[in-house]
Design a protein around this nucleic acid. Structure first.
Lengths: 206, 206
DNA sequence: ATACTGTCTTGACACTGTCAAGATACCCGG
DNA sequence: CCGGGTATCTTGACAGTGTCAAGACAGTAT
C-alpha cells in the first residue's frame, strides 16, 4: 500500500531519465552508474534493463533530450531583422546552453556515443535534424542573399558550427579558456565571422 | 636468465608509456585498463603503481607526450614568408595531427583529465607552454603588424584556436563532419579567417 | 479463472581501480 | 665479500561496475 514498496514502479522509464539527467549534471558520465541510478529510483539493479537495452541506450536517450532543447534554441534564433546582432545573440545563447550543463553537452557531441558506443538510430535522426535546422539559417534570406560569391552555405554552416563548438569545448573543458575570457573571445569570433562575411554591423531600429 | 622471466623488468616505466599509447590509439580510453596494460608488459596487475600514482597520472603522462608532439608541429609552422598560405598549411597540419590519433587528441583536450580528473602539474605546464607558443604566432611580425585595429592578438589566438579545435572535434567525433568534407570545410574556415583579418592571399614566390 | 505478458527481483560472472602486506633483487657502505 | 636498505614486483583482497540467466510477481485479456 505504501508508495515506496509496491512491486511495479509504474513510471520507471521517465523516472530513470529524469534521475539520470540529474546524476549526469552533478557527477558526469563517470558518476552515472546504472546501479546507483536504480538505487535512486528505489528499484533493483537490473530493473533499468527492462526500459533501456543497455547503458549506451540510456545515454543516447539522454543526449537526445539535449538535442531537442538545442533545437528549440535554434528556432528562437532570429537573424532576419538584424543579421550581425542576431548572430551575436545566437552565439551567446549557444554558449549559455553549453555551459549550463557541460556534462550533457559533452555527452551530446562527445566520442563516447558517436565513436566508442553505437549512436541510436533515434539519436542520429534528432541530431541531424538539429544540424539541418542550423544549415537552414545559412540558406535563408538574411544570410543567403548577402553571402560573398564563392561561399557555399553548407561549408559555411559546418565551419561556423565548428567555431561555436570549439569555443564551447575549450570553455567547458577548462583549458586555455575560462568563463571570464568567454565574452571577449566569443565577440572576437563573431567579429571575425562578420568581417569574413562582410555583413557589417546593422543599425536597424526595432 | 630468460628475458621474459626476470623479476625486475628494468624498463617498465617506458614500456608502460609505449604500450599504453598503443592501447589508447587502438581501443580508446575505455579499453585502456591498467590490468590489461600490465599483462601486455608481462608484469603483475599492481606493478604499474610503482611508476605512476594512479591511472589519472598515467593518462596525464600520455597527454603530455601528445602536447610535446604538437609543440614541435607549432615550431615548424612558418607564417613569415607567406601569411595566408602558411596559415592554410598550418591548419592542415593541425588537423592531420588530430586525425592521426583521435583518442590521443581526445585525451589531450577532453574533460576526463581537465575536469573530472586532476591534471598533473607537469601536464598543465606543458599544455600551457604549447598554447603560449601559438599565441606568439599572433604577436610576432607577419600577423602582428597586419592585424586590423582593435583586434587583440590574445583574443584572436583563442578564437582561432577554438575554430581549429572545433573542426577537429566535429571531425573526430564523426558528427556533422567526415573526412571527405574536411578539406573543403577547413578551407572555408581559413577563408573566413583570412577575410576577417584582411590578410588577402599572398602571391610571393620562393 | 487461466494463461500471457510486461515488469521487477536475486544470483552470478567477468571485469575494473586501488590498497595492504609480503617477496625478491639490486645497490651501496662497511 | 657481506649485510642492510630501498626500489621494485608479487599475491590477496575489497568495493565498484555492466550485463546475463532464471525465477517471482502483478496486471490484462480471453
Amino acid at each position: 500500500m505504501s508508495q515506496t514498496a509496491r512491486y511495479h514502479h509504474g513510471d520507471l522509464h521517465a523516472t530513470l531519465l529524469r534521475e539520470a539527467a540529474v546524476l549526469l549534471r552533478e557527477q558526469g558520465v563517470e558518476g552515472l552508474s546504472l546501479r546507483r541510478l536504480a538505487e535512486r529510483a528505489g528499484v533493483s539493479r537490473t530493473a533499468p534493463y527492462h526500459h533501456f537495452a543497455d547503458k549506451n541506450a540510456l545515454l543516447c536517450a539522454l543526449a537526445e533530450q539535449g538535442f531537442r532543447k538545442l533545437e528549440t534554441l535554434m528556432e528562437e534564433g532570429d537573424l532576419e531583422s538584424e543579421p550581425a546582432r542576431g548572430l551575436r545573440r545566437f552565439v551567446h545563447a549557444y554558449l549559455r546552453f553549453a555551459s549550463q550543463d557541460p556534462e550533457q553537452y559533452e555527452l551530446m557531441f562527445g566520442r563516447t556515443l558517436w565513436k566508442t558506443g553505437q549512436p541510436t538510430e533515434s539519436l542520429t535522426r534528432v541530431a541531424h535534424g538539429c544540424f539541418r535546422r542550423y544549415i537552414d539559417l545559412m540558406y535563408r534570406p538574411p544570410l543567403a542573399t548577402r553571402l560573398p560569391p564563392g561561399v557555399d552555405p553548407l561549408r559555411l554552416a559546418q565551419a561556423s558550427w565548428a567555431t561555436l563548438h570549439g569555443l564551447s569545448r575549450l570553455l567547458l573543458d577548462g583549458i586555455y579558456l575560462d568563463q571570464d575570457d568567454m565574452e571577449a573571445v566569443s565577440d572576437q569570433a563573431v567579429d571575425l565571422m562578420i568581417a569574413g562575411l562582410r555583413l557589417g554591423e546593422d543599425v536597424t531600429d526595432g
